[in-house]
């Protein structure tokens, strides 16, 4: 009897192992993601790409996402940033809206010690496994990053910001060869940072792994950011389907999305940023309508039901006598 039972354990183990290998070989994982999902519903109203405070956004379903503190230089932990994310689409374009609290609007980079607030969304180029943590891990799965910068927004809203905007008397009387680009080498070489004529405040980037962040030649992401009353709202907009090795979106599809925010006032730039883990992003065929408060009562009912059920278990769940 004992021997046969030992064989049972071994049998179950071997059987499970064989099934597991089978599943793995056929590229399946016996689990489904239970993370928070950001749903991009279809908007019938027009979504203006230059106004993150447009009323159309009251129809989108928001999710709150915790961000880590920046993890590069001390203090590396501590801090509790949160962003609120919303998404919409209009069959042609996908819109992602990020909102977060920031006491100061840091939108100039004219001084030696000024750094710009910034925000970014990141998608896997090819949506893969359903469990987000694994997406970034695959060396063969690059990510597409859209980074918005407050300083670039200022360039667009107010024209290129130069030293004189911070220090009006900084300029000297004569600048020889002032119009020759070669004396502005970054500009002459086409570095996007040095451009004086900007069309978008959002940088379209690709990354294969750490340290491989590359600016693409296709600056195809539009949008706008605005700071109001201690809040940034930044809107990212892009055609759902585009040419090139970038993330593609389609109605009915799911992919993943992660968020990052930089606080210029804390000298954050580069990898010094707050990041979220991957969430699920679902591009839904449903129409975004906004909704009434009735559902709150449904939730209250569910919670009350759950509590009642627990009470029932607590009161009647007496253990049977051992024996």
């Amino acid at each position: 009897m004992r021997t046969s039972r030992r064989w049972t354990v071994l049998g179950i183990t071997l059987l499970a192992l064989m099934v597991a290998v089978g599943l793995t070989v056929s590229d399946m994982r016996l689990a489904s993601s239970q993370t928070v999902t950001l749903v991009a519903k279809r908007s019938e109203a027009q979504v203006p790409a230059d106004d993150p405070f447009d009323t159309v956004w009251s129809r989108a379903n928001p999710v709150e996402v915790p961000l880590s503190a920046q993890t590069v230089v001390p203090p590396k932990a501590g801090g509790d940033r949160t962003i609120t994310a919303r998404a919409l689409h209009d069959d042609e374009r996908l819109y992602v809206l990020m909102e977060w609290e920031d006491d100061s609007e840091d939108s100039l980079v004219s001084s030696q010690t000024e750094f710009s607030d910034a925000a970014a969304v990141q998608f896997p180029v090819t949506p893969g496994e359903t469990i987000p943590a694994f997406c970034m891990g695959d060396p063969n799965a690059p990510v597409n990053i859209w980074q918005w910068k407050a300083a670039w927004q200022t360039d667009i809203d107010e024209g290129f910001v130069d030293v004189e905007d911070t220090y009006p008397n900084a300029s000297v009387d004569l600048y020889p060869f002032e119009d020759e680009d070669v004396f502005y080498p970054a500009r002459a070489l086409g570095n996007v940072f040095a451009q004086t004529e900007r069309e978008t405040p959002i940088d379209n980037l690709l990354a294969g792994s750490f340290g491989t962040l590359t600016q693409t030649s296709d600056q195809i992401v539009n949008g706008a950011g605005e700071w109001r009353d201690g809040h940034w709202r930044v809107l990212f907009a892009r055609e759902m389907s585009v040419d090139g090795d970038y993330s593609q979106f389609a109605e009915g599809d799911s992919t993943n999305v992660a968020f990052a925010a930089w606080d210029g006032a804390s000298d954050e730039r580069d990898g010094m940023k707050s990041v979220s883990q991957f969430l699920t992003l679902e591009v839904s065929p449903d129409v975004a309508e906004g909704s009434g408060g009735v559902t709150v009562w449904i939730i209250v009912a569910v919670v009350l039901g759950a509590v009642a059920l627990t009470l029932v278990l607590a009161l009647y769940g007496r253990q049977r006598q051992r024996g």
């Binding site: 999902t37 989108a60 379903n61 928001p62 709150e64 915790p66 909704s291 709150v296 939730i299």
Partner: peptide
């Protein structure tokens, strides 16, 4: 609570952030 409140808001298409979800998560 954080995950399920978001999930229920989504299922019932309720256009708001669930109350205290991040606070409870922290």
């Amino acid at each position: 609570y954080y995950v399920l409140s978001h999930l229920f808001y989504r299922i019932f298409d309720y256009g708001a952030v669930p109350p205290l979800s991040i606070s409870v998560l922290r």
